[in-house]
């Protein structure tokens, strides 16, 4: 028995999973380092959306205290994700710095070209 109205409540999570998987695909399948970082960002934001949608309560309002409000959405995921966003930008900055450094050392930001140069270097060393 498939209960359609019941499954609509899961639609959010499913779209989040689609987003997550498209970010995952970019990270594992595409060779350009900047694009990989963008993919990682897509993945990250999808996790944020997942947390925030778990904290939402139907008919609730933003967690700012007021006498007229009865139901507040859960503020705890909001706090966790605030921290995560800032940490995410810090790691992105570090990754981008590494990309700049790699580009200076190898003259390319394509993964396969870097590997080709690395192999050549090993052959030279032998």
């Amino acid at each position: 028995m498939i209960d359609i109205p019941d499954l609509i409540g899961l639609l959010n999570y499913w779209v989040v999973i689609v987003l997550m998987m498209s970010g995952f695909y970019v990270v594992i399948a595409q060779g350009n380092l900047i694009k990989k970082i963008v993919g990682l960002n897509i993945f990250q934001v999808s996790v944020f959306v997942f947390y925030i949608s778990m904290g939402k309560i139907e008919g609730g309002s933003a967690p700012i205290l007021d006498d007229a409000i009865e139901i507040y959405s859960n503020p705890l995921p909001h706090v966790l994700i605030l921290t995560a966003i800032v940490v995410g930008v810090a790691t992105t900055a570090l990754a981008l710095a590494l990309v700049v450094r790699i580009n200076a050392a190898y003259g390319t930001i394509e993964e396969d070209e870097i590997q080709a140069i690395e192999h050549e270097e090993e052959d030279v060393a032998c």
């Binding site: 949608s53 933003a62 959405s73 909001h78 605030l82 930008v89």
Partner: peptide, 15 residues
């Protein structure tokens, strides 16, 4: 839309 106003403006500014 999901009531996370603080997260929304952090994401807009930082993300």
């Amino acid at each position: 839309v999901m009531d996370a106003v603080d997260v929304a403006f952090t994401e807009a500014a930082v993300g």
